[in-house]
Design a protein around this nucleic acid. Structure first.
Lengths: 184, 184
DNA sequence: ACGAATCTACCTATTGATAGGTAATATTCG
DNA sequence: CGAATATTACCTATCAATAGGTAGATTCGT
């Protein structure tokens, strides 16, 4: 049905994750999808609207992935490893987290976009926090869940950033070591 | 003597750390420094050359800060806290790490720029690693220094990214908690 | 027939970059 | 020393390309 809009979003998401929001134009998108740039403006009046749509879609999708992990009857360690696996998958495609990429370019977003970004980070950290609190017996560190959750999520975002310019996946691997040491 | 070039570099560094490399043009720089955009090209033939100069300067400066920390007769914990303080200073100015910001936009760099970025991250991680190894008795975690160093540095880079879009400094604060728990 | 989607055909502003020139400051060498 | 020669640090003027964006006509599915 709304195939064009979906194609545009998919393409734009990919490009943002690879090279950032300012690495492509409406013409880039139009050409690849096979329409004219004016038609892209029909779907997304301005570039900030496009960015906001991408953040919402990405957040929703990520939220779904996290819920899927929650549903499984795994140990805390396995759940956190599944979270890391998501980031490893992104890295395998030579991409960044969409929201991480946009956070570095936050001034190109409007107020709504920045709020959406904040909500994404908040939701992610909160999920980790709740996951930690759901398995209090499997946490093996004096760091309280709220702080540990923040260390884990910013660690993952940073590791993705560093591992992409680096040669191997040292940083995400180190995050695995951290998870291993703080879980039973 | 080379005041113009230095002004251009200082201004460009600031702008990259705030909004990324594509947030400003040679004209932006020229106007603020009071010369013509063509004259900016005299100092930096292309934008990638400017980026490379910025990375080199930033890396050198950061390297100096790290060496200053090494020189001081502090405990491991205090040394790592001094490292965090550097990042807190950057956040206080509403900026990102220059190299972190550029890493999100790595495709606008040339091969040299990407190598310089890699070298910056490598050097930083290596410094942490060596600092940890210099105080083996003060490390209180089973995570080996190489991995711990990577967790710490990607954590700091990520925390900066997240805390800047967020309202407070939750993530850098959490990094402090981590350092507190892994050092004696 | 109607509205959603796309088109043609623009516009204005800006981008990074180049060519060619100029005045002042250094450097080199008879 | 002092004349010849570079070099530094700018300038004006201009380029083709691209940016995001708009107005209004047209096509297409239901």
């Amino acid at each position: 049905m709304n195939k064009t809009r979906e194609q545009l979003e998919a393409l734009a998401t990919d490009l943002v994750q690879r090279d950032g929001l300012s690495s492509f134009s409406f013409r880039t998108l139009a050409d690849q999808v096979g329409i004219k740039s004016a038609s892209v403006h029909y779907h997304f009046p301005a570039k900030a609207d496009l960015a906001n749509a991408l953040i919402e879609e990405y957040s929703e999708h990520f939220r779904g992935d996290l819920e899927a992990i929650s549903q499984r009857p795994d140990s805390l360690r396995v759940k956190l490893e599944s979270l890391i696996a998501i980031f490893e998958g992104v890295l395998a495609e030579n991409k960044l987290c969409l929201c991480g990429a946009l956070a570095a370019e936050a001034s190109s977003l409007d107020e709504t976009g920045q709020r959406l970004l904040r909500r994404y980070f908040d939701a992610s950290v909160t999920w980790i926090e709740e996951t930690l609190e759901a398995h209090p017996d499997q946490v093996r560190t004096p760091i309280p869940p709220p702080q540990l959750a923040r260390v884990l999520f910013s660690g993952l975002e940073g590791a993705l950033l560093l591992d992409r310019v680096g040669e191997d996946q040292e940083h995400l691997a180190a995050m695995r070591a951290l998870v291993h040491s703080v879980t039973l």
